[in-house]
């Protein structure tokens, strides 16, 4: 039997991992409740008194999940500060970043047999930036719609400018809804790509989001990021 030596690369702090799984639960909750609010597709009751306030409760769950999700960004930011491994932002200002992106893309388009190993796949990093943009749009439009019930409050002051910018509240609803679907499509691709990396490329993409570490037999090209030897 061939002996394989593996090395442990500690990447994700508990803060980032907790944030990640809060995000998973919240996005699923927000998506399902959001669809139900947009189109409450069945009659929930025949009498308001004994209805259990179904739509009202669905809305409250939506708002609660939105608040939890927003608050969980505190964990993400804290992890970013204390742990270099959490700093996933694409190094768009470095030349090697683009060479690596091309390298990975050629492999995913089946033009190359494999791509170099990365602790943090440059293409995946791009997609996470894209996800944060989508989430940011959802927060802006969502809170703008939500806080318009009290424009004098702190929320109204913080988000009140969004509605006139979009040309009306209905437009804000539309954008909120389309972007929600965009996030779901991202999730499809993301789940596929991490499973593929875990089981076909031996990259511990799934396990590291539970354990925090990647245990790899090979030396990733960007391993130097963690100890600061690669700038």
């Amino acid at each position: 039997m061939k002996e394989v030596t593996r090395k442990i690369y500690y990447l994700f702090s508990p803060w980032l991992r907790i944030f990640h799984w809060i995000m998973v639960v919240c996005i699923l909750t927000l998506f399902v409740t959001g669809l139900l609010i947009t189109n409450p597709w069945f009659i929930f009751a025949v009498d308001p008194t004994y209805s259990g306030m179904m739509v009202d409760n669905i809305r409250n769950i939506h708002f609660l999940a939105a608040y939890i999700f927003s608050a969980s960004f505190i964990l993400r930011i804290y992890g970013f500060i204390v742990n270099p491994g959490d700093r996933l932002f694409s190094h768009v200002w470095k030349g090697y970043f683009y060479r690596n992106v091309v390298d990975v893309m050629l492999h995913y388009m089946f033009l190359k047999h494999e791509h170099a190993s990365y602790l943090r796949n440059p293409l995946a990093r791009c997609s996470y930036t894209f996800l944060y943009v989508l989430v940011f749009i959802e927060m802006l439009t969502g809170f703008a719609i939500y806080y318009m019930t009290n424009i004098n409050g702190i929320g109204g002051i913080l988000f009140g400018w969004v509605i006139p910018l979009l040309g009306g509240e209905y437009m804000a609803h539309l954008i909120h809804h389309y972007v929600a679907w965009g996030i779901l499509l991202f999730a499809f691709g993301h789940v596929y790509m991490v499973i593929r990396a875990e089981f076909m490329e031996g990259e511990s993409e799934v396990s590291s989001m539970f354990a925090g570490s990647k245990i790899l037999a090979h030396e990733p090209r960007d391993a130097g990021h963690l100890d600061g030897t690669l700038k």
Binding site: P40, I43, F44, A45, P48, M53, D56
Partner: peptide, 19 residues
């Protein structure tokens, strides 16, 4: 200052899911 939705006398039907 108020949404029609938030001052509507039919709002209980919305909250109850009766459309």
């Amino acid at each position: 200052g108020n949404r029609i939705h938030d001052t509507c006398y039919r709002r209980p039907f919305f909250d109850a899911g009766m459309f």
